[in-house]
Amino acid sequence: MSPELQFLLLTILRMAVAAAFVVSASIITERSGPVIGALIATLPISAGPSYTFLALDHDAAFIAEGALSSLPVNAATILMGLVYAVLAQRRGMWISAGSAIAVWLVLATIIRQFEWTLAGGLIINAITFAVCIPLLKPYRHVAKMPLIARRWYDIPLRAALVASLVGTVVTTSGWVGPRVTGVMALFPIVFSSMMLILHPRIGGPATAAVLANSAWGLLGFGLGVAMVHVAVLQFGSAIGLCCALATCILWNLTLWWNGRRKKART
C-alpha cells in the first residue's frame, strides 16, 4: 500500500471515529433537556478527537503550543453563545446562528494573530466568563422544552460537520503550525449543529436555553484546555490528554451534583 493511500485511509478512519462520537453525544444532548444537555455539549466531544489524532502525528511540544491558542478561543465560544441567545429570542435561525458564528470567526481571526501565554489565556477567559455568565442567566430557562422530531438529514449533517473539522485539522496541522491548529481544533461544531438543527424544531428560546446553560460547563472546558498545555509537557501527550478529559468530566459532574443539591433544597 502506497504511503499516500495509507494516509488517506487513516484520515478517513479518524474522521469516521470522530463523527460517530459527536453524533452519539449530540443525540444524548437532545434527549436530556437543557441542563444535562448543556453539560454533555461542553465535554470535549469535538476538540477531544482532534487533539487525540494530532497527538498521534506530533510531539508534546506541538500539542502544548496548540493548547495555548485554543485557550482564548474558548472565550470566543461563550461570546458566540451569548450573541445567539440574545438574537434567538426574536430572530430566525439564519440571522441568529449566522451572526453568532460570524462573531466567533472574527474573534478567532484576531486571536490567531497573537502569541498567547497560559496566564494570558486564563485571564481572558476569566474576564469573558465573568461578563457573559450573568448576561446569559435570563435565557437559561424555558417554560417547556418541546419534543424534537428528528429528520433524516440530522445525523448526516452532524457527521459531515465534525468529520470535515477533524479532517481539516489533521491534514493541515503540519504546514499551518500549532498556533493555527489550536484555533481550528476549537471550532464550535457542537454548538453550531445545535443552532442549525434545534432552532427550526424547538424554537430559538429553547435552543438558546441549552447554550445558556452551557456557560459554567464551558468554563470547565477551558480549564481542561489549560490542563492540556501543562500536563502534556510534564507527562507526555497520552497522559496529558487523559488529565484534561478527567478535568472536564469532574467539573461537569460537580456542576450536576450541585444542581441536584439546589433542586432538592427547593
Rank of each mutant, 00 (worst) to 15 (best):
K263L: 14
A47E: 04
S26A: 13
Q234D: 04
R265Q: 14
A215I: 13
T11N: 10
Y153W: 15
I133S: 02
T77L: 01
T11D: 07
E30L: 08
A244C: 07
A209N: 05
A159Q: 14
W216E: 07
T247Y: 00
G222I: 01
R91L: 13
T247I: 15
A143Q: 15
T207L: 10
M145F: 15
A100M: 10
I101N: 00
K262H: 09
T42K: 02
R91C: 10
Q89A: 13
E30H: 02
R265D: 03
K137D: 03
E4K: 13
V162F: 09
A85P: 05
P205F: 14
L118P: 02
S96R: 11
A85T: 08
A206D: 01
I124F: 12
P72E: 05
L198Y: 09
L9T: 03
A246H: 05
L71A: 04
E65S: 10
A212G: 10
P138I: 07
P205C: 11
F221A: 04
N252R: 07
V83H: 01
W257Y: 03
A67R: 12
G182Y: 09
V23F: 04
L241G: 00
D154H: 13
L250C: 11
A206I: 08
E65W: 06
T52S: 03
F235N: 09
V180M: 12
G92R: 10
L136V: 09
T172H: 07
G92A: 04
R14C: 03
G174V: 08
M194V: 09
I189K: 06
M184Y: 09
M93L: 11
S173D: 00
L147C: 00
V210H: 06
A16N: 08
G120Q: 15
L198K: 07
C248Q: 15
P49L: 09
I36Y: 05
G81A: 02
G259R: 02
L250A: 15
L82S: 01
L147Y: 03
R179T: 07
L245F: 14
D154W: 15
L68D: 03
L186M: 10
L87C: 04
S26N: 10
L122P: 00
G224N: 08
A244H: 00
L223A: 12
G98A: 11
L13D: 02
G37D: 00
I148G: 05
M80Y: 05
L43W: 05
S237L: 06
A25Q: 01
G48V: 13
L13N: 06
L68W: 02
T42R: 06
R151H: 09
F235K: 11
M195D: 07
